[in-house]
Design a protein around this nucleic acid. Structure first.
Ligand SMILES: [Zn+2]
Ligand SMILES: [Zn+2]
Ligand SMILES: [Zn+2]
Ligand SMILES: [Zn+2]
Lengths: 169, 169
DNA sequence: GACATGGCGTTATAATGTTACATTCGTTGT
DNA sequence: ACAACGAATGTAACATTATAACGCCATGTC
């Protein structure tokens, strides 16, 4: 991820050329820790969904996940939704409202943090960036209208650095 | 609507206590003007959908619109979606991704403008505010990651000024 | 072991959105 | 007036996304 004023390639996947599969071990550890802290099990289904999303590195629809996880036994969408609910609570997975898709996240988001999801229209990849400027702007408009914000949704549709160069077909 | 640094009650519906039905005439004029400019008709169905949304003043689901518009003849969802497509192009209607709902808008949005939708969890009312600060923040994170943004989605879930006072059930 | 809790597997259903196609309507050209 | 064309409509079917209901089973507690 990338923080606002910081232009360096700190957490940035600098040379990731094909879709940056995120750190599966790290994200799994966080899910496990969350489960432990809440005294709820990090079950097989939850692990499978998270592992798939982490390996993919791109947003996937719930039914797509169900299909990929199906082998002899068919995995039903409802099972995926249940796993996703846990994983979102654990902060390991986000939902893209612009695509009704889910993707794994290996960042640790602070509670007050406002995160921007940048979704590439061409390749579907998602980049995250926390922005204090955006957060301040949101607080500003909320204050102006007396609105008490609880949860922000910020997504950008556009073209990622890779695809912007090659107009693509 | 409300602009960023401007704290005054310029365009703000100051004493609107019940859900501020927006200016139906104004929004209809804009739709008609858009239709004329594109040489496409502002048909009856489009007028009916817009009129209903303007009168409601609150976001409505597509199927809800279809039901309200149905009389002797049943209005099908697909007809509503087609009308909504036109109305969104005309800039008279927005879609709330957080609710899959649509609402009329009587503002005139500049092309580069970043608009924040503030959705009250309790009463469902929506306020709009254009924010230059948010726009700048979004440009910032995009630039940092080399992302070329095309269309921003910014929504805030929370409690409006009216409902924040009365905790409500 | 009895019991409660919670996840799983299954089925069904709700809610949202789209495709396909024939028909109707308004416009345009002759 | 008439044919022709494109756009908007009406209708049906379908696709996608998400949730509800319910019984089963594993786990932990008493
Ligand atoms: Zn994240
Ligand atoms: Zn891309
Ligand atoms: Zn608006
Ligand atoms: Zn409210």
């Amino acid at each position: 991820m990338v923080r606002d004023p910081d232009q360096s390639a700190s957490g940035l996947h600098a040379e990731a050329h094909h879709h940056h599969a995120i750190d599966a071990d790290a994200v799994q550890s966080r899910a496990r820790a969350y489960a432990t802290s809440k005294s709820i099990p990090f079950t097989s289904m939850r692990q499978r969904v998270l592992a798939l999303l982490a390996a993919s590195g791109k947003p996937m629809a719930a039914y797509e996940i169900a299909e990929k996880l199906s082998d002899a036994r068919r995995v039903q969408a409802v099972q995926v939704y249940r796993a996703l609910e846990f994983l979102q609570e654990a902060g390991c997975v986000h939902r893209l409202v612009s695509r009704s898709a889910y993707f794994a996240c290996d960042h640790l988001h602070g509670s007050g943090e406002t995160v921007v999801f940048m979704v590439c229209s061409q390749c579907g990849a998602v980049q995250e960036a926390a922005s204090d400027v955006v957060a301040r702007g949101l607080r500003g408009v909320a204050k102006t209208t007396g609105f008490k914000p609880r949860h922000p949704i910020v997504e950008l549709e556009g073209d990622c650095a890779n695809c912007a160069g090659e107009p693509a077909g």
